[in-house]
Design a protein around this nucleic acid. Structure first.
Lengths: 335, 335
DNA sequence: CTGAAAGCGCTAACAT
DNA sequence: ATGTTAGCGCTTTCAG
């Protein structure tokens, strides 16, 4: 058992050719190697179980086959779906994806961005809501700037808070449309279950809904941006005794939590209370009552982000808007 | 704008010290650098926006900070949860995760394994059911063998078909237990909705259930290992006119599909038909009726795999068994 | 068409 | 404590 992997030099020696020839035969772009030698090299490589060392190749070539992907939480279906889209696209291009899950913690995000930078990936995609924290945004930019100056590319899938190419979800207008639709369905007193104030998604989806709502100002209850957050928020809402006929949860996970809370209290959805979510998580498309929500082309968004970040660099950061599609289902029947 | 990233040499020059000193100050393990110089180097590095080139470091050091993770489909909550566990563990150790999503295609799996090998990661974790295809298993082994011989580590999360350390889910016995439990609840004629025959999970979960079942042999309907597969299988089962009082879907996604199919046909779950799944996907814990299933510690499994693959290499491949916990919920009430 | 040799950015002996 | 220098494995001129 050899304690180290076979190198090109080993292969060259084994095949009785020069390093250069071996390189050309195995990984070279131009096929300027005589067929016979070529075969000999290939054979030697197989015999030795040789695999090129990508690190060394990157160094020599000055470019890698890596792209970084940073998400808040890969276990969240929102992000895993985006990741799937991006991974599929990357694989088509022969690129490898380095995955970082930040847990939504700003320090983590910075640290992982640094790790990604170190790898000298071709590009980095930042998926996930921006936190509206001036200081943090500046630190992020400080990291990205030298990376970009050195030819690295960065794109985001989020609110357009960073000055990089970004796939922006038009949260606000989609939420606005949803509000209008809810109104048309005959609801009169909606409540909004939102996430932390500092998350831009939370704010935009909430604000959009409020904007689109023409009746009296909706009640707003904030909690975590998760299933449990939805559950708790719903409980507090119910405890408050507020009279509402409909609840808009800022995302599907919160909506699920809210529905669970309703069940616990014997509130019938949609009989006693209608519920709407946002994202249209595919795993949740079969829940009952079927959830009214805003469909986002998550897989597509991952693909788009990779496309942007790999395509021709633009002088100014580009924004590719993604529109949400309102999907009305049983959880908000006309009343 | 410089077209290349700042190098250690640049930093050394800027700080007026030698390459070695700069290296020691910035990335060296021992702090043998005078405070004043140290500061000067750090400062120069900041000024230049320097970040070490991980590739170069790996080459020089002879080891990387990368681990590879291969999953069937990162959009599948089963895998994304495992990935989350593994990613969290990796991050604690300062390791970066390279993610590959194979789409369950054997050729893809081979190709991505090669890509991972090339990166010279410290370790590779293969998550996902093994396909019982002799040829394919051999090709996988052929790839892994030189990687392992050269000091690489490999672990799997699956059926113990590969001779590497593996976190094995005791699918068979868990399914067996589930069958017993279903029987105790008073069901008499179960059907099994299973996945493709060549997937080991499918077979084991099915076989386990059959083994545990003491009444007459359950009907088995096979389809894809997905929500749609469950939907289709359920339809075919219903079409067949078979009289069953309970359906065991080989995983939660299929169970959801089956429940959707029931709904389409006006079959009440669990009134007309009870349904059980497998995995206990967290996103689905709030569905109604709440799904009876087998809980797997998915996050933990990801962590365990990384632990094994990073720990002391064993002479023989180790197996760390993970037991599933039967969770009876409303979808299979006593009858 | 093939080989020799100069790097790529960094670490780690080995000197001083 | 700091500097010099020889690689790490590969690609890519530059010669032949």
């Amino acid at each position: 058992m050899q304690a180290r992997a076979a190198t090109l030099t080993d292969v060259a020696k084994e095949a009785g050719v020069s390093l250069a020839t071996a390189s050309r035969a195995l990984n070279g772009s131009d096929r300027v190697v005589r067929a016979e030698l070529h075969a000999r090299v290939i054979e030697a490589a197989n015999r030795l179980g040789y695999t090129p060392n990508a690190q060394a190749q990157s160094m020599a070539r000055g470019s890698t086959d890596l792209v970084g992907l940073m998400v808040n939480d890969i276990a969240d279906p929102y992000f895993s779906t985006i990741a799937a889209g991006l991974a599929a696209a990357a694989e088509q291009q022969g690129l490898l994806v380095m995955l970082c899950s930040t847990g939504g913690q700003p320090e983590q995000e910075l640290e992982l961005l640094a790790a990604l930078r170190r790898q000298r990936g071709r590009a980095i995609v930042l998926a996930g809501s921006r936190i509206d924290d001036r200081e943090h945004l500046r630190e992020l930019s400080d990291q990205m700037e030298p990376f970009i100056a050195a030819g690295g590319r960065v794109a985001a899938i989020s609110e357009p808070k960073l000055s990089v190419d970004t796939v922006v979800v038009d949260n606000k207008s989609a939420a606005r449309d949803l509000a209008v639709r809810i109104g048309e369905l005959g609801y009169r007193r909606p409540a909004i279950l939102t996430g932390p104030e500092k998350l831009l998604v939370s704010r935009n989806r909430r604000d959009g809904f409020v904007e689109g709502w023409s009746g009296e100002e909706p009640i707003v209850v904030a909690d975590e941006f998760s299933r449990d957050g939805g559950f708790n928020a719903m409980q507090r809402l119910a405890d408050s005794g507020a009279e509402v006929d409909c609840v808009f949860a800022i995302n599907d996970l919160m909506a699920m939590g809210a529905m669970a809370a309703c069940r616990d209290r014997g509130l019938d959805v949609p009989g006693d209370l209608a519920v709407a979510g946002f994202d249209d998580i595919s795993t949740l498309r079969d829940v009952t009552p079927a959830l009214t929500t805003v469909r986002l082309p998550l897989t597509e968004m991952g693909r788009m982000a990779l496309e942007m970040v790999l395509g021709e660099p633009a002088a100014k950061p580009r924004r590719r808007k993604v529109r949400g599609e309102i999907i009305v289902r049983e959880s908000t029947p006309p009343r």
